[in-house]
């Protein structure tokens, strides 16, 4: 059995090189920071890339879906579960985290499906500009609903995972950081398995490749697209949960910049390619952290967007994507 260069060796090689370079430049402590941030970007970038892959729509509202996810998780933790601070009993913590994570992901999944059904599906055959403008509208709506429900100032999230640290290779790493990265990786692997090994995953891949042909083969296009939006929003919801746990504070306009950076990550990795999105997320986080290390924090956004423009100009297919063609 030969190993597919494109699907296995290249992603692994690029990922390894990227991680090693990051580590060499940043050192243990900052590397841990970058990995943690990258985990959040990667989870959001996956959603962009999946939706784009299947309906060729830049879901402009995806960053705001992530934001709504962080608020949903906060609401579940405070109002439903009545939590306010660290949970020290490990068993309780695992149980509570699972509940919060599961409820947020499912809740966000349904919100994602709902948005697709009412805002995007009617426009599936309209010119490209139409759904993109709709997505901008949805983004405004989500932000304003949250700001009128929870207020415009930052809202605290109970940090139920204790912020304890352990010494590791010359640095001090928080248990939460490890949890976040592991969670992101597990979700990504689960996604890969789902897309690659299940019947629904196959339907998604075929729909992305050729919608008409897939329909002729008996794939329910509407259902497949709805499920894609469900998964994308659920992953963003997971990102929202860990965002709140890690930073302890969320705000209604959080989604705009984080979403833009995650989108850059998706483009960098090669839009439509889930492995690429994950790698892109870690690279964008690295660019940001490295700008900080060099003392140019105020330029880090400029750096990220410059990366975006350069990638699009010189390699529109991204690091791992397929050639999209030069057609305008």
């Amino acid at each position: 059995m030969t190993v597919d260069f494109r699907r296995v060796i290249r992603p692994v090689a690029i990922g390894t090189i990227a991680l090693l370079t990051e580590y060499a430049l940043l050192g243990t402590q900052q590397f841990a920071n970058a990995l943690t941030l990258g985990a959040i970007y990667a989870l959001i970038a996956l959603g962009y890339t999946m939706v784009y892959g299947i309906v060729e729509l830049i879901n402009f509202a995806h960053g705001d879906i992530f934001m709504v996810g962080s608020f949903l998780a906060m609401w579940i933790m405070t109002t439903v579960l009545g939590l306010s601070g660290p949970v020290t009993n490990l068993l309780n913590l695992v149980g509570l985290l699972s509940i919060v994570m599961f409820a947020t992901m499912v809740g966000m999944g349904f919100i994602g499906m709902f948005i697709e059904r009412f805002a995007y599906r009617p426009l599936r055959h309209a010119p490209r500009l139409a759904p993109l403008i709709t997505a901008i509208g949805v983004s405004f709506i989500l932000q304003n609903i949250i700001s009128s429900l929870f207020g415009p100032s930052p809202v605290n999230v109970p940090q139920i995972v204790p912020l304890d640290k352990f010494a590791f290779m010359g640095g001090k790493i928080g248990y939460l950081n490890v949890f976040m990265v592991v969670l992101a990786v597990v979700l990504m692997i689960a996604l890969q398995l789902f897309v690659g090994r299940t019947r629904l995953g196959r339907a998604m891949r075929s729909t992305a490749q050729d919608r008409e042909a897939a329909e002729l083969m008996g794939v329910d296009i509407n259902q497949t697209i709805a499920i894609t939006f469900f998964i994308a929003a659920a992953l963003a919801g997971a990102g929202g949960v860990i965002q709140g746990l890690y930073f302890g504070s969320i705000k209604f306009d959080l989604g705009f910049f984080v979403g833009l950076k995650a989108f850059t990550a998706a483009v960098l990795g090669g839009i439509g390619n889930t492995t690429g999105a994950a790698i892109g997320g870690f690279i964008i986080a690295f660019v940001e952290v490295y700008a900080t290390v060099l003392g140019y924090t105020q330029w880090s956004e400029v750096a990220v967007f410059t990366v975006l423009i350069l990638v699009l100009v010189f390699r529109p297919s991204g690091l791992l994507g397929q050639q999209l063609g030069e057609r305008a």
Binding site: L260, F305, L308
Partner: peptide, 18 residues
């Protein structure tokens, strides 16, 4: 401007922030 329409949208968005 060689980019696909929606890529162009994002590039200009980035430019608008830069």
């Amino acid at each position: 401007l060689r980019l696909r329409g929606d890529y162009l949208a994002i590039v200009t968005l980035g430019f608008g922030e830069i």
